[in-house]
Nucleic acid binder design. Structure first.
Lengths: 337, 337
DNA sequence: TTGAAAGCGCTAACAG
DNA sequence: CTGTTAGCGCTTTCAA
């Protein structure tokens, strides 16, 4: 089942391999005649160049890696679409890797990239990622990295984020405007850039309205649905429980709704809920869910575009900057008066 | 920024390249001493073998492709997790390609695989895919293919599906048991294996209960949310409209809920709804949604496992068989009495 | 305009 | 146990 190679094309046409090769790069030093002959035979035999031979020789793989915490989240699903759309356009291939929120796995994955397997990396870091050593190491080896969504703010490269702080502010402000006095902020990590920034905005909004934010209003959830349900039920049952909840990641929404349902707490009557979410089901939840919706597709697209631009240039250091694609607040019933 | 190679390790240690190479395959013909020396230096220099050189030489890429219609659907998101989990375990890399439901793109993607870029392919076909020529061609070139979820039933290879027909039967039967007399079946394609099979089951259930299924009860939806909303509203407003709806793919759920909301049609009072869906929000919809939930993770895992098993053997023809991972009916409020 | 030759980094006979 | 050699399929000087 030997695949067809340039050598075979060359032999068949009594040409040299190098001539054939030049045809495929559309070199001007080849006559139209020969080009046509070669292309015709190539099509007839269904020839496709071996990418690995080419990669080896040219020292570039025309492949990028996308490193994600997980993909069971609508944000990343949609982001992948954005990435894939520009990769395809640029003739790049996309390898996907999941860290499952494990720093160790993230490090192992990036270490592998030292091999030259990929020309660049798009990454959204795990929530365990407190050091960026594995990332800078890769960059030193000449592999450009673009962060998206969950970024390392100290790392000297381009970051694509949404306006997390402003969105946090907006979310809290919205709840306050709707009459909330005591707002709880639900998160899955205290270290993650997005969580921290959203929280900061939230606190600023509260401060601006002379409302308190106590330590107990910051609620750390987990990866486990059942646990989260218990945590949130406990929160809601406290005598001085919140009248407004901000779910800082979409996966926490279900637990909030379920907790309220089980405790027969009315949304938005007793407690108002807003969630950072891209779920298409937000409008059909009971009640429909007010969301801060991230521009997932655009962020993916932007990240990929920035990466490819730097790949085109030989010595293009990615600038240490943050590109912000704004989120949008979609008001629905869950924060109604 | 020249990467470190075996040659360098060899020179540094005054060994031959082949000796170094053998160390990395853990060959028994190398002394413990040398192994240690080499490994130590490799670790120190952060050496990672060039996968493309290796692929070129060994004629295998340790990479598989996953070809999907799209990934904005929870089924595929979760399936990717299943696939990735076993790929990682087996030391394989995963390239991802999206067809966006376009046959032409699917063909172009598979054509590229003739190059030897991947050792095997996991595919869920587009809803335009009526011919399997591009797939069999690839198989003839020695690249094994495993279908999952959306399969080509005539193609001689292994297919991982869920029990679509039985699930269709179950869905309809459930509606009937709950008192429905007139059931509409919503689909996005008449050719797709999954849609056809689910429909078949549905019809069988109706027949078994001596209930009619008219042509107009088969409702073909589109890729466009707004259009679907209009289609479903039209359906519900007909004088002899359905009292039960089966949404054969999850993306149609929102349109059904929204249509009912806009028309003030009570679920489940006036019309009962069941959906083929993996959405985690099903329990918190209004009303909570009865679903046929597909074992997405398991199907992804199974597909990958079957593929890797065939990859281990040199001449392993994949058997032309269908492996069925059953779906489960989760009864919730949307089909209550 | 075409071809010969070298080599990308690794593996696999085979010889020593 | 280690080394020599050839070559995977392609690109890229350089020479003709």
């Amino acid at each position: 089942m030997a695949n067809i190679s340039m050598k075979m094309l060359a032999k068949e046409l009594r040409l040299s391999v190098s001539t054939v090769s030049k045809v495929f790069t559309d070199s001007h030093e080849i006559s139209e005649q020969t080009k046509e002959k070669v292309l015709a035979l190539a099509k007839k035999l269904n020839y496709v160049p071996n990418p690995y031979a080419s990669s080896l020789r040219k020292r570039q793989s025309k492949t990028i890696a996308v490193v994600l915490p997980e993909v069971a989240d609508s944000f990343f699903s949609v982001a992948i679409n954005g990435i894939e759309s520009v990769a395809r356009e640029k003739g790049y291939h996309v390898l996907i890797y999941l860290t499952h929120e494990l720093l160790e796995r993230e490090q192992a994955i990036l270490t592998d990239f030292q091999s030259g397997r990929v020309d660049g990396v798009l990454i959204s870091v795990s929530n365990e990622t407190s050091t960026d050593q594995h990332i800078t190491e890769m960059m030193q080896r000449g592999i450009p990295v673009v962060f998206f969504d969950r970024v390392c703010e100290e790392t000297a490269t381009t970051r694509i984020t949404t306006n997390d702080r402003d969105s946090g502010y907006l979310a809290a402000q919205h709840l306050i405007e709707q009459g909330c006095k005591r707002i709880a902020y639900l998160t899955i990590s205290e270290s993650l850039s997005i969580s921290r920034n959203r929280l900061t905005g939230c606190k600023q909004a509260l401060a601006a309205h002379h409302l308190p934010f106590r330590d107990s209003d910051l609620v750390l959830c987990t990866d486990n649905e059942a646990e989260n349900l218990a945590i949130i039920k406990a929160l809601l049952e406290k005598k001085n429980g919140p009248d407004g909840i901000i779910a800082s990641v979409e996966k926490l929404t279900a637990a909030v709704y379920l907790a309220c349902k089980e405790l027969k707490i009315a949304i938005p009557g007793k407690v108002k809920v807003i969630s950072f979410s891209n779920q298409s089901t937000a409008p059909i939840l009971n009640p429909s869910l007010t969301t801060i919706t991230q521009p997932a597709f655009e962020m993916g697209k932007m990240a990929a575009t920035v990466l490819f631009n730097s790949l085109r240039k030989t010595q293009a250091q990615l600038r240490s900057e943050t590109i912000v694609v704004p989120s949008v607040l979609v008001t629905r019933e869950s924060t109604g008066k």
